[in-house]
């Protein structure tokens, strides 16, 4: 080729076609999708917890998108009905995830609503799930002699905490647990079958 013009024209038009199809059209198609009736905006604490979920990179091992029962037994595992676009109305950024090194979490609040369980599990996952490969997050907690007023001591299984000490959740652990408990999209939606 003797001229760079076809190259430039071709490169522009090809990336434009791709961007139109994968970015612009979904934008137009989805921008009017509203929140389902049962979905509530995140509270301030839950949103802070969601930010902590991002800070700790939870999304690299946990998806938030149960698949259709025709494709995978996500529903049978208790992960919930297949999600729809409206379920993510309040989600910025999206946290759909691409890995299931751990289970899907879109409805973790529905299947494990205990704040205590989540706090303890975040401190030391292997105290709750033998064989788990999830990292613990001890830096979201303080190990003290006793909890001060207003602090939340985590109730842990015996052996998970040094004798004579208590484990106290830092505010960001409480926020994260509040977010996890809030993850509950079990309200009904009109399911459109996914191809």
């Amino acid at each position: 080729m003797r001229s760079e013009k076809p190259l430039i024209a071709g490169a522009i038009s090809m990336v434009a076609v791709a961007g139109f199809l994968l970015v612009v059209v979904p934008f137009i198609q989805l921008k009017d999708v509203g929140p389902p009736k049962g979905l509530h905006p995140y509270t301030t604490a839950q949103q802070r917890g969601r930010d902590e979920y991002i800070r700790q990179g939870c999304l690299y091992c946990h998806s938030q998108q149960p698949r259709d029962r025709s494709q995978a037994p996500d529903g049978a595992r208790g992960w919930g009905r297949p999600s729809v676009a409206g379920d993510y109305y309040y989600d910025r950024p999206h946290l759909l995830g691409t890995m299931r090194t751990g289970p899907d979490l879109l409805n973790i609040g529905a299947r494990q609503p205990s704040l205590d369980w989540h706090l303890g599990h975040l401190y030391q996952p292997r105290a709750y799930v033998p064989g788990s490969i999830m990292p613990g997050y001890p830096f979201l907690f303080d190990v003290k002699d006793s909890a001060e007023p207003g602090e939340r001591a985590v109730s842990l299984p015996p052996g998970a905490v040094p004798a004579g000490k208590v484990v106290v959740a830092q505010p960001r652990a409480l926020d994260l647990a509040a977010y996890l408990v809030s993850l509950d999209r079990t309200y009904p939606v009109i399911e459109t079958a996914r191809p």
Partner: peptide
């Protein structure tokens, strides 16, 4: 072409305040 494409992709993918929910996932993987 790669040097031309990269800034376009990087700008569209990163532009703040435009993408939302599921659409953002599509843009993310685009």
């Amino acid at each position: 072409a790669a040097l031309f494409w990269f800034p376009v992709l990087f700008l569209v993918g990163n532009v703040p305040g435009v993408h939302f929910g599921v659409q953002q996932a599509a843009a993310n993987w685009w």
